[in-house]
């Protein structure tokens, strides 16, 4: 129970939140708290103040829009699991986050902006060609998921910006999600995979926990679209990812598993 005296500003509307963000670019943004509170208790976070978006209306909704779907950044994993509108890949990813109590608080936006390379939903956004909508006093802009995570825990989000939501364009093809974690629940990923493939047209092979950021294996994707043999695609995946040894697993394991998952999925199509 580390005592934290830092003040909290709790905007109720998105407009208030965006104004507040402009005023307090140093603030730590918190939503469901499932990451921030852990950092705070462990002492790794030294906050000056907080911007709390948990009760901010206008973030916790999703709907179909022309040419796709919009998911509010404040959607919790439970919201996403329960909504019939949720894309199946998003639902699968959200249902592997922590356990029920975590899913009830953890938000999509938090998972994206925390930008842990092992974030469970992150490869899904890559596989679905998602765009993140960022808002500030200066206006709104959209950043493709593929260019959002720039380095280990580095994201393309300016100090005055907030993530408002995710735009999922209409996509085609077979999809697949697989999380390999430390156990069946309450588990941090060792390897996460999200894939989308339409034979001869396009392929997305996206991974988490195998490099400093979630990543797509673009050479493997190209080989797949070009109709190269599965073994060749798998070899490219294994070459493109850059996993490390840590207390949870080994680079060798992660590399082998990443290849196996892709091989199994492609063989099943």
């Amino acid at each position: 129970m580390l005592r934290c005296e830092a003040p909290v500003y709790r905007p109720r509307t998105l407009t208030d939140a965006i104004y507040a963000r402009a005023d307090m670019p140093d603030a730590t943004v918190i939503a469901g708290g499932t990451d921030v509170m852990v950092y705070l208790e462990s002492g790794s976070l030294k906050p000056t103040r907080f911007l709390d978006l948990w009760d901010c209306s206008g973030l916790r909704w999703q709907q179909f829009i022309t040419g796709g779907q919009f998911c509010g950044a404040g959607l919790t994993c439970t919201d996403a699991i329960r909504s019939p509108q949720t894309h199946p890949l998003v639902r699968e990813a959200c249902s592997t986050v922590g356990a029920v109590q975590i899913q009830n608080r953890a938000t999509i936006g938090g998972n994206i902006c925390n930008s842990s390379p092992a974030g469970d939903t992150l490869p899904v956004w890559l596989a679905l060609d998602a765009e993140f909508e960022l808002a500030s006093m200066r206006g709104r802009r959209r950043v493709p998921a593929a260019s959002f995570w720039k380095g280990y825990k580095q994201i393309d989000l300016r100090p005055d910006e907030l993530l408002v939501g995710v735009l999922l364009p209409q996509t085609t093809g077979e999809t697949h999600f697989r999380k390999v974690g430390t156990r069946m629940a309450q588990s941090i990923s060792k390897v996460i995979f999200a894939g989308r493939y339409r034979r001869g047209v396009e392929a997305r092979l996206a991974f988490g926990a195998v490099g400093p950021t979630p990543m797509r294996c673009r050479e493997a994707e190209a080989a797949l679209v070009a109709g190269r043999p599965v073994d060749e695609v798998v070899a490219l995946v294994e070459a493109e990812i850059t996993p490390i040894d840590d207390v949870r697993s080994t680079a060798d394991y992660r590399r082998k598993v990443a290849g196996n998952i892709v091989r199994r999925w492609l063989a099943s199509l």
Binding site: G33, E41, D52, T78, I102, R105
Partner: peptide, 9 residues
Amino acid sequence: VPVMSCLVP
């Protein structure tokens, strides 16, 4: 809704 109270400010 069940939550972890150690993670809720």
